[in-house]
């Protein structure tokens, strides 16, 4: 199973998470977002970039409440709240945003 990004293929697992984290690119993120029926806005990118930075620093994808707390601190309560996060990523901010960010499925995420 693979995504097609401008003619190159990027392997992913049965749930759509990419196999090799270093395969990620912004173009790939757009391809995954399309598949998830998400139109990437600045707010979407802010969350995705936050997740990538968090993973780079701590080697884990944060739990949803950790993500929301951090986004709230960084970007304010209008963005950093549960409702808004689910508007951005209807199938779950951690799960769906992590997939677009090219991270493994979060630990404990069901």
């Amino acid at each position: 199973m693979a995504y097609d990004v401008n003619g190159t293929t990027v392997e992913h697992d049965e749930e759509g998470y990419i196999t090799n984290l270093s395969d990620w690119s912004e173009d790939l993120a757009k391809v995954i977002a399309d598949q998830e029926e998400i139109n990437m806005t600045d707010e979407h990118w802010a969350v995705v970039n936050f997740l990538r930075d968090y993973y780079e620093e701590y080697q884990i994808a944060p739990a949803v409440r950790v993500l929301i707390k951090a986004i709230k601190k960084e970007m304010g309560p209008e963005v950093g709240n549960n409702k808004y996060m689910y508007e951005l990523f209807p199938y779950g901010p951690a799960k769906q945003a992590c997939k677009i960010a090219g991270l493994p499925k979060p630990t404990g995420c069901v």
């Binding site: 968090y54 620093e57 701590y58 080697q59 884990i60 944060p62 739990a63 950790v66 707390k69 951090a70």
Partner: peptide
């Protein structure tokens, strides 16, 4: 193997 020592620094967030 995965180096999980940086993950201890995330515990405060939890």
């Amino acid at each position: 193997m995965k180096n999980f020592s940086p993950t201890f620094r995330a515990l405060g967030d939890y």
